[in-house]
Computed example of a mutant assay.
Amino acid sequence: MSIFSFLFKEQNLPDEINILDRDKYKEAISKAKVQLVDVRTKREFMSGHIKGAKNIDFFQGPVFESAFSKLKKDVPVYIYCQSGNRSQKAAKKLVSLGFTKVYDLKGGYMGWCY
């Protein structure tokens, strides 16, 4: 790891979490069927979302954890929110729940525009 990647790693994220720019994210989710989750509110989700995404609202606490307990922890999960802040918090929560590969969309849905 270079000194720059060490110094500028986004908010000291665990190794299980990777932040992808929109092009790499799009490429990754288009290759195969993936666990794609929008962690915004239902209202945000209904106003527009990435095709194929499942909505699991981060703010729903126990419902959030319960919904993720139905996903495979050893299969990569791709998450996003509106701007990237909430999904980073969600990613950390997923790692604490045992998920081993979490990919987050840098800048969130606001920067998606596909």
Rank of each mutant, 00 (worst) to 15 (best):
S2G: 12
S2R: 12
S2A: 01
I3S: 11
I3F: 12
F4Q: 11
F4S: 10
S5M: 02
F6A: 09
F6E: 13
L7D: 06
F8R: 09
F8T: 11
F8Q: 04
K9E: 09
E10H: 01
E10V: 02
Q11D: 12
Q11R: 10
Q11M: 04
N12V: 00
P14M: 02
D15L: 11
E16I: 02
E16C: 05
I17K: 06
I17T: 06
N18Q: 15
N18G: 04
I19N: 08
I19C: 12
I19E: 14
L20W: 00
D21R: 04
D21M: 01
D21F: 02
D21A: 03
R22K: 14
R22M: 00
D23I: 06
K24M: 02
Y25I: 03
E27M: 05
A28W: 01
A28N: 09
A28Q: 09
A32V: 04
A32L: 10
A32K: 15
K33F: 10
K33Y: 04
K33S: 13
V34M: 07
Q35P: 08
Q35S: 12
L36I: 10
D38N: 09
T41L: 08
E44A: 07
E44H: 05
F45H: 14
F45W: 13
F45A: 02
M46E: 15
M46C: 01
M46P: 00
S47T: 13
S47H: 08
S47W: 06
S47L: 14
I50V: 13
I50R: 04
K51D: 01
K51V: 03
K51H: 07
G52H: 09
G52F: 02
A53C: 07
N55Q: 14
N55H: 04
I56V: 15
I56N: 13
D57G: 04
D57H: 06
F58M: 11
Q60P: 00
P62H: 10
P62F: 08
V63M: 09
F64V: 08
E65N: 14
A67G: 05
F68D: 05
F68S: 12
F68E: 07
F68C: 05
F68R: 10
S69I: 05
K70H: 11
K70R: 12
L71E: 15
L71Y: 15
K72S: 13
D74I: 06
D74C: 06
V75T: 15
V77A: 13
V77Y: 05
Y80I: 03
Y80F: 14
Q82Y: 11
S83R: 05
S83W: 07
G84S: 09
G84W: 05
G84K: 03
N85K: 14
R86W: 01
S87P: 12
S87W: 07
S87Y: 06
S87N: 11
K89E: 13
A90L: 03
A91T: 11
A91E: 11
K92D: 08
K92P: 03
K92Y: 07
K93C: 09
L94Q: 12
L94P: 11
V95C: 13
S96I: 02
S96M: 12
F99R: 06
T100G: 04
T100C: 07
K101C: 10
V102F: 06
V102D: 06
L105N: 05
L105K: 05
L105I: 02
K106G: 00
G107L: 04
G107F: 08
G107N: 11
G107W: 06
G108M: 02
Y109V: 02
G111M: 08
W112D: 03
W112K: 03
C113G: 13
Y114H: 10
